Computed example of a mutant assay.
Amino acid sequence: MPEPTELEKKERISVEKLVFLIIAVLVVVYIACDCIVYSLRQGFDGFWERLGVGIGAICTIGIYSFLYRENPIYRFLEHILVGLSVGYGTGVVWTEVIQPQWLDRMFGAEGQPANYLWLLVLIPGVMWYFQLSRRHVWISRFVIMFFMGTGAGGAFRGTFQFFFSERGQVIQTFKPILTESAGSLHFTWLNFSNLVFVVVVLCVLSYFFFTFRHETNPVLRGSSRLGRYFLMVCFGTIFGTTIQGRMSLFIDRLVFLYHDWLGISG
Score class of each variant (00 low, 15 high):
1 M>G: 11
2 P>M: 07
4 P>N: 05
5 T>V: 04
6 E>C: 08
9 K>L: 11
14 S>W: 10
16 E>V: 08
16 E>Y: 12
18 L>A: 15
19 V>R: 12
23 I>S: 05
23 I>L: 13
24 A>I: 08
33 C>S: 14
36 I>C: 04
41 R>G: 04
41 R>C: 01
45 D>H: 12
46 G>S: 07
47 F>M: 06
48 W>K: 04
49 E>M: 08
51 L>Q: 05
52 G>W: 02
53 V>G: 01
53 V>M: 09
56 G>H: 00
56 G>P: 01
57 A>F: 00
58 I>E: 06
61 I>H: 01
62 G>Q: 00
62 G>S: 11
65 S>W: 00
69 R>G: 09
72 P>T: 06
74 Y>L: 07
74 Y>K: 05
75 R>K: 14
82 V>R: 15
82 V>L: 15
85 S>I: 14
85 S>C: 13
87 G>H: 05
87 G>N: 07
89 G>A: 14
89 G>R: 10
91 G>R: 06
92 V>F: 07
93 V>F: 11
95 T>K: 11
96 E>R: 10
104 D>R: 05
105 R>Y: 07
106 M>S: 02
110 E>Y: 15
111 G>F: 06
112 Q>H: 07
112 Q>I: 00
113 P>L: 06
116 Y>E: 00
116 Y>A: 02
118 W>A: 03
118 W>F: 06
120 L>Y: 03
121 V>H: 08
121 V>T: 11
122 L>G: 07
124 P>S: 03
128 W>N: 08
128 W>F: 13
130 F>N: 02
131 Q>F: 07
132 L>R: 14
135 R>W: 09
136 H>G: 00
138 W>C: 04
140 S>Q: 04
142 F>Y: 13
143 V>M: 03
144 I>H: 09
145 M>T: 12
148 M>W: 14
149 G>P: 01
149 G>F: 02
150 T>V: 08
154 G>H: 11
155 A>F: 14
156 F>E: 12
160 F>V: 14
165 S>L: 04
165 S>P: 02
165 S>F: 08
167 R>K: 15
168 G>Y: 02
169 Q>G: 09
169 Q>M: 15
171 I>H: 10
172 Q>L: 14
173 T>R: 10
174 F>C: 10
178 L>P: 02
180 E>Y: 12
185 L>C: 10
189 W>L: 13
190 L>H: 14
199 V>L: 13
201 V>T: 11
207 Y>D: 00
207 Y>W: 10
210 F>Y: 12
210 F>E: 12
217 N>Y: 04
217 N>L: 04
217 N>I: 01
218 P>H: 03
218 P>G: 02
219 V>E: 03
220 L>N: 00
220 L>Q: 01
222 G>P: 00
223 S>G: 04
223 S>T: 10
225 R>W: 06
225 R>A: 09
226 L>F: 05
229 Y>M: 08
230 F>V: 03
231 L>M: 10
235 F>G: 02
240 G>K: 10
241 T>A: 15
243 I>D: 06
246 R>P: 00
249 L>G: 13
249 L>Q: 13
251 I>N: 10
255 V>T: 14
255 V>A: 12
258 Y>W: 13
259 H>R: 15
262 L>C: 08
265 S>W: 14
266 G>A: 06
